[in-house]
């Protein structure tokens, strides 16, 4: 059974339709990239799969997350699905953490919930060990200090790592990454991508990776869907889509990326 199966998903805004019927599936352990320009509906599509659309937006069609229908379910019915099945990492590390809560406390929340869900009791020492283990998993140096720090005291890259740790601490099987590296500088971007790559492999996670950055998507995903104006214009293995694009829009995207690369090489 597919971990995520989306059929003819449509998202309606207050005035018009924003996503016009998109279908795809994600198998356990598979890595799917959603590519497209801003406003192409890639984030809307991803958020619909976990029932987290903003107020005023409505999804139609069918989304089976771990075999359970998401569309049309009340929020309360979806709460138990989120976390153990799917978790999200966002674009902006500044708003991904509660500014008024120490990092250790924020990280403790998903750990405690997971323990409660699995019926384990969690002592203070066990909790601390888990916190340190997760910070270690996301390669954070000096985890002891980080636990007692406030979000504004650490760098953007570290915040994004902590956000990833919080998402993974829920124990999901699908990680939805919504432009997780866009707001970071290039070096940090590469580090965070490597980290996501390693973690997904180690934890056997399926990845739904959303980005407008073709090289980034090419690096981390197996299969890719190209979206334009709320439609999927091309789908296939990442290698094939980026080397032999069929759709005119994809060809344009790839050509633009190549031009940029050539320009950068020319400068060197």
């Amino acid at each position: 059974m597919s971990l995520l199966e989306v059929k003819d998903l449509r998202v309606h805004g207050p005035a018009r339709e924003l996503v016009h019927g998109i279908s795809f599936s994600v198998e356990p352990g598979e890595r799917l990239g959603l590519v497209g320009e801003s406003g192409s509906g890639k984030s809307l599509t991803a958020m619909s799969t976990v029932g987290l659309l903003a107020h005023g937006l409505r999804a139609e069609g069918s989304v089976l997350l771990d075999g359970q229908q998401v569309i049309g379910k009340p929020d309360r019915a979806l709460v138990p699905l989120r976390g153990p099945v799917a978790a999200v990492v966002f674009q902006d590390p500044r708003s991904a953490l509660d500014p008024l809560m120490k990092l250790g406390e924020q990280l403790a929340h998903p750990i405690r919930r997971r323990a409660k869900r699995e019926g384990r009791s969690l002592s203070a020492t066990a909790l601390r060990a888990e916190q340190l283990r997760w910070l270690d998993r996301v390669s954070i140096a000096d985890p002891e200090r980080i636990l007692t720090s406030w979000p504004h005291e650490v760098s953007g890259g570290q915040r994004q790592r902590i956000a990833i740790a919080m998402a993974l601490a829920c124990g999901p099987r699908l990680l939805i990454a919504d432009e997780p590296t866009t707001a970071l500088d290039v070096t940090t971007q590469a580090e965070v991508l490597d980290l996501l790559d390693t973690l997904a492999r180690d934890e056997g996670l399926a990845l739904l990776f959303i980005s407008h950055d073709l090289p980034v998507v090419a690096r981390i995903t197996d299969r890719v869907i190209v979206m334009q104006q709320g439609r999927a214009v091309e789908e296939g293995p990442v290698h094939q889509v980026f080397t032999r694009p069929r759709d005119a829009y994809t060809q344009g995207l790839v050509a633009a990326a190549q031009q940029l690369e050539a320009a950068v090489r020319g400068m060197q």
Partner: peptide
């Protein structure tokens, strides 16, 4: 804010 969506996604009511 994203941290609210993240919290919801991690299964917080």
């Amino acid at each position: 804010q994203d941290y609210i969506t993240a919290a919801r996604c991690s299964g917080l009511g």
